[in-house]
Design a protein around this nucleic acid. Structure first.
Length: 591
DNA sequence: TTTAGGG
DNA sequence: CCCTAAA
């Protein structure tokens, strides 16, 4: 449906935004990463990133656990921050293609569907889409990258794109048992002339600061000392709009880089197994993870050897080995008029979404979530070898770029995607749950409703979330044969930085909110408009709002016949014109 | 970082 | 939506 809509809008060629929105600001500049300052603790949620970085950095197999622990302490938990890359629409476990990913369908392509006797929608409904071996091999790249290095991530993301149409197939459910999973690298990949994935030439400091900006913890008022609160005249009486978080965001997440210029030509990859029935991914090995295992138990069912303390190191770091991930079931929904090729793309993008649309990480110890992300590994009992065998991870696709996770949820978003995916578990359209007083800023702007767009709802905590179908399960000691090494295609880095954001047409509700905000604030105060009316719509920047206003004014000035897209009520357009004329320079604004 | 405009 | 000069 999403796809259909995007096609209806006639947009093709947009690609999945690879960069988090925040990092777009750095686009075109030398670096999209930021150096982070020192941190005193290794946060639990950083653990996985650290793990992966360790994997990348170390190729040795002998390590002294005590030495690692010592180094961990001495390094103050220096670590790499994990980031993800952009997201596309995802429909919960039902992964949906984003609009025009890779330039999906055009009219001419759709017409070609007549040549196919199949009803693709029916087929898709009745079949499970599955990645073949080669895909499993491919997708491990971004997965690893997402945990380690933004630059690597980017390159891998593109590699995935380029090869997407070649490695996707769909199979009948009946054929499930024939699926061999990802354990065996396919000959195709093995012989591929193009280096599929990555090779970490360098691991830089990398945390993109902005994506963390909306981390749920930061939304707690306590997190913002009074001196962080600045006001503008307009907001002087409006507590909600006062908060300016930039400074505190920035400082809060400062971290020190750990691995600088650690030229690594070899490293281990995390393989991704994608299958409907994850337990089959292992070719008969102990599944350990029932297909519908409950979220709480996921990731700990087979905790053994998640930790690999056998690596050699010069520092007292905790060494963790995440040998493989499993990708949950993917569903694809396509219009019947879609081409086979587009279907392939859809599957690929679905997998991309699951893997790269943002991951939330659970750290589980003794089967329980580590409750406090702020604790050090040592404090959490992770840094010592005696607990290593009880440590597990659970990664799950980030359903939406959510910023209202319960603060007590130990769940951490590896990357809150700037472009929130659509999710099947979408929500309750009611805004009550959003504006229910969780955050002070939600009561802003004189009752101006915010966040009308369904896509903007932040309801992950309400999502029924059949987690089992959405989680990426960290499988220890799996798919070890896939721990291959891939050189990095550095050429892909640059282009990845300029990935265009996905198009997200404004809904009428959003337009109304915008108009209302501008009516109150006037034009030219887009940042305030943003904070008042779209504070929760992370994908709407003030520039977006400004642009939208611009187009609204234009739309209002043209004849209805010339207008495109979702019709905006004339009443709104009239208001637009009124406000525009009022604030336009021609008319002296003697407010 | 924001604003303002052109692309 | 992107890009970017200016502020």
């Amino acid at each position: 449906m999403v796809l259909e809509k995007s096609l209806d809008y006639g947009f093709k060629g947009y690609r999945v935004p690879i960069m988090p929105r925040a990092s777009r600001s750095a686009r075109g500049k030398a670096s999209v990463t930021k150096k982070i300052g020192g941190c005193q603790k290794m946060f639990a949620f950083e653990l996985l990133a650290s793990v992966a970085s360790q994997i990348l950095q170390k190729n040795e197999d002998n390590v002294n656990p005590q030495e690692m622990a010592r180094m961990n302490r001495e390094s103050n938990g220096d670590c790499l921050k994990a980031t993800g890359w952009g997201s596309i629409n995802i429909d919960g476990s039902l992964a949906i293609v984003s609009q025009g990913v890779g330039g999906l369908l055009g009219e001419h392509e759709r017409s070609r569907l007549g040549s196919c006797n199949k009803s693709f929608s029916d087929n898709c409904r009745n079949k499970l889409l599955r990645l073949d071996d080669s895909v499993g091999l491919e997708t491990k790249c971004p997965a690893l990258v997402s945990l380690d290095s933004s630059s690597e991530r980017l390159s891998c993301g593109r590699a995935l794109h380029r090869s997407s149409s070649k490695h996707v197939k769909y199979v009948n459910r009946d054929d499930d048992e024939k699926f061999s999973g990802c354990s065996q690298p396919s000959p195709l990949n093995a012989s591929s002339s193009r280096p599929l994935c990555f090779g970490v030439q360098r691991i830089e400091e990398m945390v993109v600061s902005k994506p963390w900006k909306f981390a749920p913890e930061l939304l707690k008022k306590d997190e913002f000392p009074a001196n962080d609160v600045k006001t503008k005249p307009f907001f002087r009486s409006n507590k909600a709009c006062h908060i300016r978080r930039r400074a505190s965001y920035h400082s809060y997440f400062k971290r020190r880089k750990l691995f600088k210029q650690s030229s690594v030509s070899k490293f281990k990859a995390i393989s991704i197994c994608a299958s409907t029935f994850p337990e089959k991914c292992r070719n008969g090995e102990d599944p350990a993870y029932p297909a519908n295992i409950h979220r709480a138990s996921v990731g700990v069912s087979s905790p053994a050897s998640v930790l690999n303390s056998s690596w050699k190191t010069r520092e007292s770091h905790v060494k963790l080995s995440v040998k493989s991930f499993k990708v949950p079931e993917l569903f694809i929904e396509m219009p019947e008029t879609a081409t086979v090729d587009s279907l392939k793309r859809a599957v690929m993008e679905a997998a991309m979404t699951v893997l790269g649309g943002g991951l939330r990480v659970h750290v589980l110890l003794h089967g329980n979530k580590v409750p406090d992300d702020s604790k050090t590994l040592l404090q959490s009992g992770i840094s010592q070898g005696d607990n290593m065998d009880t440590l597990g991870f659970m990664l799950e696709p980030n359903p939406i770029g959510d910023l209202t996770l319960k603060s007590d949820d130990p769940l951490f978003m590896l990357y809150p995607a700037a472009n929130q995916p659509f999710t099947r578990y979408h929500a309750n359209p009611s805004m009550d749950s959003i504006d229910g007083g969780d955050h002070s800023q939600t009561e802003s702007c004189n009752g101006l409703k915010k966040n009308h767009d369904e896509d903007d709802t932040h309801l992950s905590h309400e999502v029924p979330a059949p987690e089992s179908s959405k989680s990426l399960i960290v499988l220890p000691n799996m798919c070890t044969e896939a721990l291959n090494m891939f050189p990095l295609d550095q050429r892909s880095q640059k282009t990845e930085l300029t990935r265009r954001r996905i198009r997200r047409p404004f809904s009428v509700a959003e337009v109304e909110a915008l108009v209302q905000a501008v009516e109150q604030l006037g034009t030219g105060r887009w940042r305030d408009v943003k904070h008042c009316a779209f504070d929760c719509a992370k994908h709407r920047t003030y520039v977006d709002l400004k642009d939208k206003w611009k187009t609204l004014v234009h739309t209002a000035q043209i004849s209805p016949q010339q207008r495109r897209g979702e019709a905006v009520p004339q009443e709104l357009l009239d208001r637009v014109l009124a406000v525009h004329s009022y604030w336009s320079p021609q008319k002296p604004k003697d407010k």
